[in-house]
Simulated scan of single mutants.
Amino acid sequence: MASLSKNKIKYIHSLELKKIRKEERVFLAEGPKLVGDLLGHFPCRFLAATSSWFQEHPGIDASELVEVSQEDLSRASLLKTPQQVLAIFEQPQYTLDPEAVRSSLCLALDDVQDPGNLGTIIRLADWFGIEHIICSQNTVDVYNPKT
């Protein structure tokens, strides 16, 4: 079992900052549910998980895979209680498609500041089948770990 280098842990912690996420064009996801939902939908640059998580999820497609101890995961995690796996995914590039706006139900958000509120809005939009969410420039970063 490999351990995470101090530099890798420092890099993971730096992704808490919007500036770094934007420069690197990546975002951090933690926990089996979230990482499981994102795998296969976004390119995964790095994934660190416990051996038990890897046993339950063979054949993971990621640029870098590291099996770590719970202690290493705790040091790298931004969560108070780390949960088996964390991953760094590439941010997708979107362009506004005027036809999608004309032909489907869209949600437009203006200056939503709380990341928890944005996360709730995204989950509700998904539940109602709203596929397009358009955010103003001053809306909180959708890739904020708290979103």
Score class of each variant (00 low, 15 high):
residue 14 S to F: 00
residue 18 K to H: 04
residue 38 L to Y: 11
residue 43 P to T: 02
residue 141 D to G: 05
residue 139 T to S: 05
residue 8 K to E: 08
residue 71 E to T: 07
residue 126 D to V: 03
residue 112 V to Y: 04
residue 54 F to P: 02
residue 87 A to R: 07
residue 143 Y to M: 04
residue 128 F to G: 12
residue 11 Y to P: 01
residue 23 E to Y: 10
residue 56 E to A: 15
residue 44 C to T: 08
residue 50 T to A: 14
residue 49 A to P: 11
residue 134 I to C: 06
residue 15 L to C: 05
residue 25 R to N: 09
residue 117 N to D: 10
residue 12 I to V: 08
residue 46 F to G: 01
residue 127 W to D: 07
residue 88 I to C: 14
residue 69 S to Y: 06
residue 29 A to D: 00
residue 25 R to S: 00
residue 105 L to Q: 10
residue 9 I to E: 01
residue 75 R to T: 00
residue 114 D to L: 14
residue 73 L to K: 11
residue 93 Q to W: 14
residue 97 D to N: 12
residue 40 G to Q: 03
residue 98 P to R: 15
residue 14 S to I: 02
residue 1 M to A: 08
residue 49 A to N: 09
residue 57 H to F: 06
residue 40 G to D: 05
residue 104 S to Y: 07
residue 9 I to D: 01
residue 32 P to V: 09
residue 54 F to R: 04
residue 96 L to Y: 09
residue 82 P to V: 05
residue 18 K to F: 09
residue 2 A to I: 05
residue 119 G to A: 05
residue 135 C to Q: 11
residue 79 L to W: 01
residue 95 T to S: 10
residue 103 S to F: 04
residue 31 G to C: 09
residue 17 L to T: 13
residue 99 E to P: 03
residue 61 D to N: 15
residue 5 S to Y: 13
residue 145 P to F: 15
residue 4 L to K: 15
residue 82 P to Y: 04
residue 66 V to D: 03
residue 2 A to E: 13
residue 44 C to L: 07
residue 120 T to I: 07
residue 10 K to H: 04
residue 53 W to N: 08
residue 9 I to F: 04
residue 78 L to F: 06
residue 120 T to K: 13
residue 41 H to W: 03
residue 134 I to W: 05
residue 110 D to V: 03
residue 36 G to K: 09
residue 43 P to G: 07
residue 52 S to N: 10
residue 39 L to T: 13
residue 97 D to W: 11
residue 63 S to M: 02
residue 35 V to D: 00
residue 71 E to Y: 14
residue 90 E to M: 13
residue 69 S to K: 12
residue 83 Q to S: 08
